[in-house]
Simulated assay, not measured.
Amino acid sequence: MTAPLGAPDLPRPWSAILDEARRYPSPHNSQPITVRVHDDRRADLCYDLDRGLPAESFGIPFAHVCAGVFLESLATVAAAHGWAVREDLHLAPMDFAAEERQHLLGHLELTPVPVTAAAREQWAAFRRRRTSRRPYDRRPVDPRITEEVAAIAVGMGQEFGRTGEQDLVDDLIRINQETLFDDLRDDAVHAEILAWLRTSKRQAAATRDGLSAETMLIPGPLLRIAMRHRWLWDLPVVGGLFRRVYLNTMRGVRELGWLTGPFVGPADHVEAGRCFLRVWLAFTRHGVHLHPFGTVITNPRSHAAFVERTGIEESGGRMAWMLFRYGTGEAPPRSWRRGLEAMLLDRDATAVAR
Rank of each mutant, 00 (worst) to 15 (best):
A119M: 01
A119Q: 01
A119E: 00
A119I: 00
R120C: 04
R120H: 12
E121H: 14
E121G: 10
E121C: 07
E121N: 13
E121L: 11
Q122G: 02
Q122D: 12
Q122P: 02
W123D: 09
W123F: 11
W123T: 06
W123Q: 12
A124M: 01
A124D: 14
A124T: 04
A125C: 05
A125G: 01
A125M: 04
A125T: 01
A125W: 05
F126N: 00
F126K: 03
F126Q: 01
F126C: 01
F126P: 08
R127N: 04
R128A: 02
R128S: 00
R128C: 02
R129M: 04
R129V: 02
R130H: 07
R130I: 08
R130S: 12
R130A: 10
T131K: 08
S132G: 00
S132D: 00
S132E: 05
R133E: 04
R133C: 02
R133Q: 10
R133I: 05
R134W: 00
P135L: 07
P135F: 06
Y136W: 11
Y136G: 06
Y136M: 12
Y136S: 04
Y136L: 14
D137L: 08
D137Y: 05
D137E: 05
D137N: 15
R138F: 08
R138Q: 09
R138G: 11
R138W: 10
R139G: 11
R139Y: 05
P140L: 10
P140N: 01
V141H: 05
V141A: 07
V141G: 06
V141F: 02
D142K: 10
D142L: 06
D142S: 08
D142C: 04
P143Y: 09
P143Q: 02
P143C: 05
R144N: 10
R144Y: 03
R144A: 12
R144V: 11
R144H: 13
I145L: 13
I145S: 02
T146Y: 01
T146I: 14
T146S: 09
T146G: 01
E147M: 09
E147Y: 06
E147F: 05
E147K: 12
E148M: 09
E148A: 12
E148H: 15
E148D: 10
V149Q: 08
V149F: 06
A150M: 09
A151C: 02
A151Y: 03
A151N: 08
A151S: 12
A151W: 01
I152A: 06
I152L: 14
I152D: 02
A153C: 14
V154F: 15
G155I: 13
G155N: 11
G155A: 08
M156C: 14
M156Y: 14
